[in-house]
Design a binder for these strands. Sequence first.
DNA 1: TATGAATGAGACTTCATTCAT
DNA 2: AATGAATGAAGTCTCATTCAT
Lengths: 211, 211, 211, 211
Amino acid sequence: MPKRTFNRLDDDKKERVMRAAIEEFLARGYEAAKIETIAQTAGVAKGSLYQYFDDKKDLFLYSVTWAIEYFMKSIDRQTPLKDMDVYDYFLSSGRERYELMKREPLLAAFSLDVASGKYNSLTREINSEYKRIGEEYELRLIANGKRRGTVRDDLDDKTLLLFFQGVTEKFTGEIMAKAEGFKSDPTEEQLCGMENLMKSMVSLLKQGMGR
Amino acid sequence: MPKRTFNRLDDDKKERVMRAAIEEFLARGYEAAKIETIAQTAGVAKGSLYQYFDDKKDLFLYSVTWAIEYFMKSIDRQTPLKDMDVYDYFLSSGRERYELMKREPLLAAFSLDVASGKYNSLTREINSEYKRIGEEYELRLIANGKRRGTVRDDLDDKTLLLFFQGVTEKFTGEIMAKAEGFKSDPTEEQLCGMENLMKSMVSLLKQGMGR
Amino acid sequence: MPKRTFNRLDDDKKERVMRAAIEEFLARGYEAAKIETIAQTAGVAKGSLYQYFDDKKDLFLYSVTWAIEYFMKSIDRQTPLKDMDVYDYFLSSGRERYELMKREPLLAAFSLDVASGKYNSLTREINSEYKRIGEEYELRLIANGKRRGTVRDDLDDKTLLLFFQGVTEKFTGEIMAKAEGFKSDPTEEQLCGMENLMKSMVSLLKQGMGR
Amino acid sequence: MPKRTFNRLDDDKKERVMRAAIEEFLARGYEAAKIETIAQTAGVAKGSLYQYFDDKKDLFLYSVTWAIEYFMKSIDRQTPLKDMDVYDYFLSSGRERYELMKREPLLAAFSLDVASGKYNSLTREINSEYKRIGEEYELRLIANGKRRGTVRDDLDDKTLLLFFQGVTEKFTGEIMAKAEGFKSDPTEEQLCGMENLMKSMVSLLKQGMGR
DNA sequence: TATGAATGAGACTTCATTCAT
DNA sequence: AATGAATGAAGTCTCATTCAT
């Protein structure tokens, strides 16, 4: 957890620090990430980081928290998701989701890495705390689906969750990799490719776990 | 690539070294892995490792190669796979596959990590070489399926591959984690759980990408 | 080149570091010199040296620069050398030069080693830069001599330079070795010996390259 | 000193070993020279070197001895030097000396480095033994010169020796460097340049220490 | 609070030397 | 005697963390 000092910072600096940290952790991995680089990128002194966080690990762990919270906020804002269907969850958004990845490729990529288990040695301890946040949401989607009869009920929820996560993580990774490819502005054609990929995924999900 | 020196070693020592390396890389990740520890575990001198390999990276890269080759051999031996169906691919083996993981949890876990993209920063260069080996096999399964009408043909092979990999990697990871749990000897009940998980996975795969 | 960090140090510490480095390089040669020893002698932490310089080589190269510059300053201060004669160049100073060597035996010995080509494998790259500084000066002396008729003009300047350098380097080395011998305070007799050696050298130079 | 084992080797292998050692020491300096490389170049096993010599230092010291002895033999063969004049010593040979350097650039360069004090930290101990060999010869030349009146007698022999060595070492170094430049076959023009350089040197020596 | 120099534990790597075959 | 694998001491360099200003 960040120290009191960090919370007192103005939002801009807070954000600069967190983005710098995430950028570095994403690019190099936890071990190879350099505090020095993070400080430079954020435009603060190396020593300052130690006034904000206990140590490197603390900074990393909060990076995870921060990224997830940031994403949650964004997604919440976009999808009211009150009582949404598993399949619609993705279809409804389509291009929107892609836009989010496009707008925040850093956070998206980082979250994906965290979710898919890189950094596991570090996050195992916090998994119970953070991973569950996402899972809870997804489990609710599944439960909803079962209730309204769009999700098969011959498999238990946890198994379905595995399926759901496996598929979505893989496709998200692929989309991210592609987005990485056409850096600046994707052509309409490329956007279409993205949407088709999304649609394919939803179709596979639907058939796979549908009734 | 290992140096000539390594190839000249007797098989036992070669295996000890590779297993020690894999164990360490798996447990700590590439950066945090210590050459010293690997040497001790393997029962050789630190300096010897540098007679076998150019440097840490070289050792790591060969660990990947070695693990994959080891697995290939084992799997090939078990499944004739001449003209096998995607779904049977997993079902047929069931307990067998589980036994393999149980027998070689180290290699299994390591391979999974490699396959699912941890170490990507290191393996990207060799991915084209090794990752493709696995993918090729899987693509063939998919093509087979399409030909005989058990796999839907409204999606292209690469998309189906993503789906297939996403699901199988996730389930394999879960099984591995469970296996980790009941270290020594799994009860019959636990083995059943495993098999059920496998069956569920196959069912989800079948429905999802089936026709 | 030293990093910014080094230049910001107070002069005392800068000097301590450079002298420690030169002392070690002189005593052991480049390869055998230990960073650890330099740090200890300078009274700084090993790591600090790496905040000042990129690596051992960088430190060494700057040691050369530093020593030469230090010497240049001292010599410039003592000899106005506007339009000086080759032979007077040494004679004029005599005891003075000896005093300099006595005062800065470290720098003198180090410079001599550098000038006479030890460390050539390292300094070849910078030779063009630094060696030329000294040579330029000496070539000017030779040109002066030719112009005013005190230096023979049947040999070209570069050949005369070889001669000049060969003789002066050898004698300087000898003087240095002797000075080393009577550590603390040389007796009047010893000082005389020095002066005689200088005079002999000048006499040999004069006859050799004189007209 | 080499062990008995070394002396028992056939001459070819002995020579291969010594040349390999000298090549490596010359190229890299004592500290950086690798036993491994020497062994490979000589075409013997690393371990064998330790059957021939006590250790690296022993091998180095004998390299010096071997090179000097080799040179002595060659020079002796060419110049009867019974009662030769200092100046003739060089003039007489001229192209011959150059040929020697050309024929044995390795040994020539190595000897020069040894003579001019590189490796001093190692050879100081043996200087008394080997350096004196050359010096003795040169001192005799000087004494001869004084006796027959071609060398000034207002300076003592040791001073004249310094002068003599300073000049000859520097010029030899220059010639060697040039020879290095036109590797394989020097043109007649280049050979002439060499001879002129030699003549210039002798002229400077003659004037400088002549009467 | 902010800064950035100082610190030193610790990791990788090299290589002279030993030793078993 | 010859070989080349084995060894581990020792050295360079990195970088998280501390600390004085």
